[in-house]
Design a protein around this nucleic acid. Structure first.
Lengths: 156, 156
DNA sequence: AAAAAGTACATGATTTTTCATATATATTAT
DNA sequence: ATAATATATATGAAAAATCATGTACTTTTT
């Protein structure tokens, strides 16, 4: 079958790789009773606790209003907490709870194992190249963050 | 800010790259009045006209029932046509119309220009490595297609 | 120091997407 | 040939996501 345009189109290639491997891992997540969006919120908070809601949204690649709703659900499950900033009472910093950490930590272990299985399909040099190139590409997103002059975490 | 896990986690890196660049292009699409899902259906059909609905769904990375609905909308806009297969009357092969091609072709030109701008941020060797590695990764998806023993196009 | 403009987050209506399942046709096993 | 199983697509209710806008607070301008 000829897929002349698509198979060489970077955006499709990236979407395909992302989709294929994410779905693989999402099956494991769902088996643990965690939806993919909640996982994305939780690992971001694990990496960077106390992030402000808008920053969290940008890092988790979701819309702000969606993150408001996801966070509210997670608050209901006692997996995260919201704290109003004292410096700026409009802002809400989000903190992962101990319960949240207890849920997410074993999933991080699983994620690392899964990642290994994905990378196992590549040669060591390919692995190195891939990660280094993806990091270079990530800078464009990082620039957007700067342009937005985004304040990330609560430093009270 | 320390993002120790996420910044090195392949699935996140892929999602970030895919998201960042796709959103850039989606802005152009929306300006042309085409939603991202419809674009994905249409380019797949441009590349491979007459695909069966289920195959189209796998290639466009959407669920079957969703593609049924997207295709029905596109039929309403006269951008694609559905034809029942004579060999297997359950199957529906989807064909892009001339109107559909006329809509999509200029967008393909834009997509190629946009892709160039993305790749411009990389060295020529990085560009080569990236595409070749992504193609290797794509084989896992291709294997799924084979496992599913998917009949792709109508050959009446 | 007001007024105006800007920002962070929340809210609710609308749209999109998913999930479970129905329907129609094909294939396989008896 | 018939029954049982499997497959392709459609459908409709439910859930999730988006969009436009509201509210509360801050910053900037005059």
């Amino acid at each position: 079958m000829s897929k002349k345009f698509i198979d060489n189109y970077l955006l499709f290639q990236l979407a395909l790789a992302s989709h294929t491997f994410s779905e693989e891992f999402y099956d494991q997540l769902r088996a643990a009773g965690v939806s993919p969006p909640k996982w994305r919120i939780l690992i971001n908070l694990m990496d960077c606790p106390g992030m402000y809601l808008t920053a969290l949204a940008k890092y988790a690649l979701y819309e702000q209003s969606r993150v408001t709703k996801l966070v509210d659900q997670l608050v209901g499950e006692k997996l995260v907490e919201k704290r109003t900033s004292h410096q700026d009472r409009r802002r809400v910093s989000i903190h992962i709870t101990d319960k949240g950490l207890a849920l997410v930590k074993p999933l991080v272990v699983q994620a690392k194992i899964h990642e290994k299985s994905v990378l196992a399909g590549l040669t060591p040099t390919d692995r190195k190249h891939l990660k280094s190139i993806l990091k270079k590409l990530a800078n464009r997103h990082a620039k957007d963050m700067q342009v937005a002059n985004l304040k990330l975490v609560d430093t009270t």
